[in-house]
């Protein structure tokens, strides 16, 4: 409800669908959350589990789906409620699981989602089921897509070798790199490391040059050695944005950006050009940009 205000009205709970013309009346909503949230209030069933026990709960659903018995209480939830919820999922025509950071940013991290994915997979033997991440920031899916096609990994990419890309969350993830002092320069692009990173991690990063590329003043820009403002993608800069279900949406610019403020792309082209100058190499990948001019939006003058 609050993290993605448009989600309930446009996609998940209320809208009238092709096969669900009565909207919410034709949907059953189960909310899994240790807190009494507004989404939980909307739900038909609220499974108020003990914090940090999502993994056990999903395992219980799977065990029930396979026809086995489970203990009387799992993760603080009564067996009857789990059995009933599993039955609802199984009998649904189409079961959709949305998950967010409450699940991914607690103990077990990926394993919690792994269990939920396994549940989705099992449900497909009974009905049709899908699972989708409620991504945090608006175009967070975009870099995941681009890096996947360029390097084969969606995040945590270590390109330092120059010969091949390496990824291993736990080692090459930004907080691990910071905490272990594995980097000697930090560039913060389009996010707010100051607000989102644990304070000890930020303290480690502050030992070295700290650069922020962001249209706004934010906690990271406040503590940066250098803050470079850029245009806002999707507002004064057009381009392709990936919706959280990976659908590409072609954004136009709606207002004209401030003079002298570059877009992210222009900025990094300039940095690249200067780096090529310093290393005496040919900036061949700039040429690739020249032929891809963004269209002028006639509505913007």
């Amino acid at each position: 409800m609050h993290a993605h205000p448009r989600h309930t009205s446009r996609y998940s709970i209320f809208p009238r669908g092709f096969f669900t013309p009565k909207g919410q009346m034709q949907r059953t909503i189960i909310s899994i959350d240790p807190r009494q949230t507004d989404t939980a209030k909307l739900a038909d069933i609220h499974l108020m589990l003990n914090q940090g026990h999502d993994y056990e709960l999903f395992d219980a659903f799977r065990t029930v789906l396979r026809g086995y018995d489970i203990p009387d209480e799992v993760a603080g939830i009564k067996k009857e409620v789990i059995v009933k919820s599993a039955e609802i999922m199984k009998k649904a025509k189409f079961c959709m699981i949305f998950f967010g950071m409450g699940c991914t940013h607690t103990d077990g991290h990926n394993h919690n989602i792994d269990a939920a994915i396994s549940l989705t997979r099992d449900l497909n033997n009974h009905t049709k089921a899908s699972i989708m991440a409620m991504r945090g920031h608006y175009n967070i899916t975009g870099p995941g897509q681009v890096w996947s096609w360029q390097f084969g990994f969606p995040y945590c990419i270590d390109l330092s070798k120059g010969t091949h890309a390496h990824m291993n969350p736990g080692e090459t993830s930004s907080i691990d790199l910071a905490m272990r002092d594995e980097v000697d320069c930090f560039v913060n692009v389009g996010t707010d490391a100051g607000a989102h990173f644990p304070i000890p991690a930020v303290k480690h990063l502050k030992k070295h040059p700290f650069i922020t590329v962001d249209p706004n003043f934010c906690m990271a820009s406040e503590i940066s050695d250098l803050h470079i403002p850029v245009r806002i993608a999707g507002v004064d800069e057009p381009g392709v944005v990936y919706r959280m279900d990976n659908v590409p949406i072609q954004f136009r610019s709606v207002i004209k950006g401030l003079p002298g403020v570059p877009s992210d792309e222009e900025l990094f082209d300039l940095v690249y050009e200067r780096m090529c100058e310093l290393t005496k190499t040919e900036p061949v990948w700039l040429a690739a940009k020249a032929d891809r001019k963004y269209p002028q939006n006639p509505a913007v003058s």
């Binding site: 026990h53 056990e56 395992d59 219980a60 799977r62 065990t63 086995y68 489970i70 203990p71 799992v74």
Partner: peptide
């Protein structure tokens, strides 16, 4: 401390 529900 916390047993998996899938074990019997």
């Amino acid at each position: 401390k916390f047993m998996m529900p899938g074990f019997k």
